[in-house]
Design a protein around this nucleic acid. Sequence first.
DNA 1: TTGTAAGCGTTATCAC
DNA 2: GTGATAACGCTTACAA
Lengths: 348, 348
Amino acid sequence: MSNPTMAGSGKGGRAPRAKSAATIYDIAELAGVNPSTVSRALSKPGRVSAKTQQKILDAAEELNYHVNIFARALPTGKTQTVGLIVADITNPAFFDIIRGAETAASDRGYTLMLAESTESAEHELTAAKRMLATVDALILASPRLADEEIQALARKKPVVVTNRRVAGVGSVVADTEAGVADAVRHLADMGHGSIAYVAGPDRSWMSRLRWETIKERCDWHGIAVATVAAGAPTVDGGRRAAAVVRKAGATAVFCYNDLMAIGLMRELQAAGMNVPGDLSILGFDNIFGSDFTTPPLSTIKSPLRELGVAAMAMVLDETVQESGITMESTLTTELVLRGSTGRAAGHS
Amino acid sequence: MSNPTMAGSGKGGRAPRAKSAATIYDIAELAGVNPSTVSRALSKPGRVSAKTQQKILDAAEELNYHVNIFARALPTGKTQTVGLIVADITNPAFFDIIRGAETAASDRGYTLMLAESTESAEHELTAAKRMLATVDALILASPRLADEEIQALARKKPVVVTNRRVAGVGSVVADTEAGVADAVRHLADMGHGSIAYVAGPDRSWMSRLRWETIKERCDWHGIAVATVAAGAPTVDGGRRAAAVVRKAGATAVFCYNDLMAIGLMRELQAAGMNVPGDLSILGFDNIFGSDFTTPPLSTIKSPLRELGVAAMAMVLDETVQESGITMESTLTTELVLRGSTGRAAGHS
DNA sequence: TTGTAAGCGTTATCAC
DNA sequence: GTGATAACGCTTACAA
């Protein structure tokens, strides 16, 4: 490495690009065989005699040969690439999904191609269509697209969605049931009698599922519950919900995700409210940084990484793809109690 | 969207894949012209008469034509794709770089291909080599590779690095000068006489630059300064530095990045120290979440998004690429004072 | 302005 | 087991 103190603005020479790479013809010549034999030896080992195989391998090594994936893709249509579209790269909830998917992909010799839809169905469709031309398969993480659009994509290439169910399309979702059940039970124990929900984007299937699960558990415990606001699934979205939440008069509030919960909490605190003294706050996902706040956020943890791994495994699973069966897999969530939840206000 | 309550595990039918896509031959037939004319009309408009152009466009539209980028890539070698390798997708400092690069890419009709090296030079090289076969250009964000390796990559395709200078390779770096100068001056004003630096990875060029700049400014102000620890550029890395920092006896500490600063601060607080009362802490970058902590982190803000935009612009700038000139561009940093810095302990 | 034809590097389908 | 040879879909001189 050159020395940092050498830093400065300016220009310098640049090395020229390398000449064209070796092809199977070069190998064929060097090994004294036919190009098609080289192709066989390199792509499906076993269809060629042991000694020619070795000659070819040696020649390839010597010439520093690498397949041209475009040339290969032309007849086969396969690129060893899979696309992943996330709503927002900036949302830490997607990190581990991306990580999991990337790991699972490279384990299988595939490369990940990442795009973001910036929470817009339109961008998502554009990105999906552009990718579809290039990739062997596509994963849609928390898509904002309509069912029909997703089904249309799935008609062209294998598609798997995460945190969403779409008829006829493979999917893996984090089950909200377990985490929410524990959370509501805990709140009931702490004397909370009125709970609010701050929803995410209208198009978010997961926001609706979370709400329905919360509602169901609250009804079961005889706790009053209502959706009091909806907004962008961001810190800012949470902030903007603060006024309404405050007026709602609940003693505890679930937010669609941790980002919103953090924004809400900070805005409320800035307005002089005490968390959890005046209000208990819960998020979803357990993202990076959700324990940085004061108090640290209580949340319902999603198995993010596993979601990514499972989605990749599913979309690349040949037997499933061939069979025409639609897989649906469910991973479980877990309550993580930290400092943002406590006894109901005025409850001893 | 299907209803969330429909969620469940099971199987279902799956639609069959669509038949093969339309080619320029299909268009040619439909429009009554030669395939090569179609190619011209579609790739370089203007080389064809207005009316045939229109006929071809209509036919393409009707057939829902999309170029096969592999077929195109074969003769041209161009894929309209650029690779970006980051050290760690999980580090919020890279978000905005990614965002900026992605925006700049799609503005120019390019697609971003993302990979992470997980802070390992070896993984980085693997990813870079794999990508190089596919992309038109490559951006290395804070690479851990040796200069020679980067130069070798740059010999094959256009390469630009961020936050690093490599002889003969395009680069864009966030100048530490401005931010550090302000920060050290501020600390001097607050009575700090002894400052510590917690370094990042050994291979980080930026960590060394930051240290050198800090050292220089401290010397200038007559403040004692020393690197007291080094570690992974993560929250955990910062945590592990806590014991040493405490023993160092400085009244203020710069950390290589915000992640480390957050980890250090939390660990120190857990051990009963008061920030900034007993110790002032500063990070670098101003990442998402650096204001979530209590106290919120003071930091030297990097123009992350602009870094991504500039890198993409540079690596795709044809005139620069052709000319063989190496560009080096520098963006400026800025001190962001929040709650983690204050008067020196025992100073009134 | 438009048509002809020769690749680009692989894979796949034949024979042998 | 191995060798010819025709695709794959597009670009690009070169002719017309």
